[in-house]
C-alpha cells in the first residue's frame, strides 16, 4: 500500500517548506496532515514523510511514537477523552469516566488523558477533539444520544 497526499495538501506542503529553514522541521506538520487525511499514520505514510523531509523512516517512526496524539492504528470508534489530572479528579472525573465506560463503551473509545488546560471547567472531556467543560452525566447523555 502506498500513501499519497491529496492535491490540496501537496500544495500546502510547498508553502510550508518556505516557512522553515530546514525540511526536517516539517515532520510534525506533515504527520498532522497525514493523520487528518487518513485518521491514522501508516507505515507507507511515514515513508512518504521520510522522503519529503529527507530523513530515515526509523527517525519518523521514532517521532511518531514519542507523541501521544499520533496514532499508528485507525480508531474503530469515535473518541472521548476524559481528563484525569488533579483539578478534574477533585471535581468528579472518576465518576464521569465510570459513567461513560458503563454506558457508552460500545459506541465510543473512552480514554483517560492528562491535564488538558481546562482546569476551571473541571471535570472536562473532549468529544472528537472538541472541548466540553463542566460536564455532567445529564449533559453527556444529551450530547451522546
Amino acid at each position: 500500500m502506498s500513501f499519497v497526499f491529496t492535491k490540496k495538501n501537496t500544495l500546502k506542503i510547498q508553502e510550508l517548506k518556505k516557512s522553515y529553514p530546514k525540511k526536517k522541521a516539517l515532520i510534525l506538520p506533515l504527520l498532522w496532515m497525514v493523520q487528518k487525511q487518513d485518521n491514522f499514520i501508516s507505515e507507507a505514510a511515514m515513508k512518504k514523510v521520510a522522503d519529503i523531509t529527507e530523513q530515515s523512516y526509523i527517525h519518523i517512526y521514532g517521532v511518531v511514537t514519542f507523541y501521544t496524539m499520533f496514532r499508528l492504528n485507525k480508531p474503530e470508534k469515535k473518541i472521548i477523552e476524559v481528563c484525569r489530572t488533579l483539578s478534574c479528579e477533585l471535581n468528579g472525573s472518576e465518576d464521569i469516566k465510570a459513567y461513560l465506560d458503563y454506558n457508552y463503551s460500545n459506541e465510543y473509545e473512552i480514554l483517560e488523558v492528562e491535564c488538558m488546560g481546562a482546569c476551571s471547567g473541571a471535570p472536562m472531556c473532549t468529544l472528537n477533539g472538541k472541548y466540553m467543560e463542566n460536564v455532567t452525566k445529564e449533559e453527556l447523555t444529551r450530547v451522546l444520544k
Partner: peptide, 11 residues
Amino acid sequence: DESEPGTFKDR
C-alpha cells in the same frame, strides 16, 4: 505548549 496541571491562562 501549556500543559502544567492547574494552568490554563495562555489558552
